[in-house]
């Protein structure tokens, strides 16, 4: 349990607090990905702005060259990714086998998502020469999730070692 939690006097803080936070973060993640999917499909009216650096149209618009991987919109990949992360963190409470492997699975999933986001952000900065603030919000959510997942894996491994020693 983190010291700041103890300092706040929070009692009964769940041992897998990192997983709960990841689950919580998946909700705004889903919302951002859904917004970007609507944007990609042209369901949201928008305009190009004078600032060349903040333009979701160039990044995720219907005609943006890097907004799809083949026929699959990147935003849809994000939406599915967040949904899988949310389901995994929820199902692990009910499915013991999943619970046993959940630290590795969540680190793997969020790690892949982190690398994917890193690649997309690099594309925005160095190839497209424009950024979409919603993509950056998604990248920030994924980064926090990945850090939390590593923290969970470390605490889980520590518990396992402790149990083995006992």
């Amino acid at each position: 349990m983190p010291l700041w939690v103890l300092a706040m006097g929070v009692r009964n803080w769940p041992e897998d607090w990192q997983i709960r936070l990841i689950q919580l973060l998946a909700v705004p993640g889903l919302m951002v990905a859904f917004y970007l999917l609507l944007y990609h499909n042209g369901n949201l009216i928008d305009a190009c702005t004078a600032s060349s650096w903040d333009d979701c149209g160039k990044v995720s618009g219907p005609d943006a060259p890097y907004s799809s991987i083949g026929p699959i919109p990147v935003a849809l990949i994000g939406l599915v990714g967040y949904a899988v992360i949310f389901l995994l963190t929820w199902l692990k409470d009910w499915w013991l086998l999943l619970d046993d492997y959940s630290p590795e699975l969540i680190v793997g999933l969020t790690g892949f998502a982190f690398l994917f986001s890193l690649g997309l952000t690099a594309l925005e900065l160095f190839v497209i020469n424009a950024i979409c603030r919603f993509c950056l919000v998604s990248a920030a959510i994924i980064t926090i999730m990945f850090v939390l997942a590593i923290s969970y894996l470390r605490s889980f491994s520590g518990e396992a070692i402790g149990e083995a020693a006992d």
């Binding site: 305009a47 190009c48 149209g57 160039k58 219907p62 005609d63 943006a64």
Partner: peptide, 10 residues
């Protein structure tokens, strides 16, 4: 309109 703007094209 701006010729580089995808919304203008649309």
């Amino acid at each position: 309109s701006d010729y580089g703007c995808n919304h203008c094209k649309n």
